[in-house]
């Protein structure tokens, strides 16, 4: 379970990215985080594993308070949180297998990781995950030899290799075509359901968000302006999040999808 309470973030330049944000996510719930660009979605997700330091507020994962941890303790909590990125964020010049195994870096010693001698269970798990996402035969290829959809699957495998208790997903479909986007979202949801894994999916595509998540949080200028089921997301709410616009076409699109 993840609980975020009263988190604010002000950047050094004085921009207020998050303003008193609070919510909790129970085990197994997949939450979609929507909002216009610049609303603080990406900052919020990065505050959870402290890639961005929150200015104030507390974040707890299970019993561990994430905010206020020392650097070495932070490592051990980061390895419990898997993260999936917009531009895949694979290390492009490493092989697919190395990218997946890098999910174990928080667990193995430096020398083992330097010599690429990971424990047998880790390697087995990596193969199983590559098989699960359908990339078994690409294990020894370099990551930059894969297509966008394939790379995002490697990104998912890397996050799952960590045995995470929580998934943070930052715009997983922003660089993909509509068909691949749906395949990737379906895969993510399936995996979360298989493992009873809670996830925060930061997504700008409202149609996809409605279709695949069970709860939506709407962010506007760093504040939560909506928190509820996808079915409650009507025109007034959309206007509150994104501003004035003709939302009727969007509704039809969702029904079609």
């Amino acid at each position: 379970m993840l609980s975020v309470s009263n988190v604010s973030k002000t950047y050094a330049a004085g921009d207020k990215a998050l303003d008193d944000v609070s919510f909790t996510i129970p085990a197994g719930q997949v939450v979609g985080l929507i909002g216009p660009s610049g609303a603080g979605k990406s900052t919020l997700i990065r505050c959870v594993n402290r890639l961005v330091e929150p200015t104030s507020g507390t974040i707890t994962l299970g019993d561990t308070p994430i905010t206020g941890l020392s650097v070495s303790d932070l490592r051990s909590v980061r390895r419990r949180i898997g993260m999936i990125f917009q531009e895949y964020a694979l290390v492009e010049r490493l092989t697919v297998m190395e990218n997946v195994l890098s999910g174990r870096l928080g667990y193995v010693s430096f020398w083992r990781s330097l010599l690429r001698r990971f424990p047998a269970v880790d390697v087995q798990k990596a193969y199983a995950l590559l098989d699960r996402v359908g990339l078994m035969e690409h294990a020894s290829k370099r990551a930059d030899a894969l297509s966008g959809g394939q790379r995002q699957r490697v990104g998912i495998a890397r996050a799952l290799e960590q045995d995470p208790e929580l998934l943070l997903v930052d715009e997983p479909t922003a660089s993909l075509d509509p068909k691949t986007s749906r395949q990737i979202m379906r895969l993510l949801i399936e995996i979360c359901n298989e493992r009873q894994l809670p996830a925060i999916i930061n997504i700008h595509d409202v149609v996809l968000a409605r279709q695949f998540t069970e709860r939506l949080i709407g962010l506007q200028a760093g504040r939560i302006v909506f928190d509820g089921a996808p079915s409650e997301l009507d025109e007034t709410v959309l206007t509150r999040i994104y501003g004035e616009e003709d939302w009727t076409t969007l509704d039809k699109e969702t029904e079609a999808a």
Binding site: T95, E98, R116, A120, Y127, A128, D131, S140
Partner: peptide
């Protein structure tokens, strides 16, 4: 079901 997968991988 991971037991059937290889336990070693060497980098090319």
């Amino acid at each position: 079901g991971t037991a059937s997968y290889p336990t070693r991988w060497t980098r090319p």
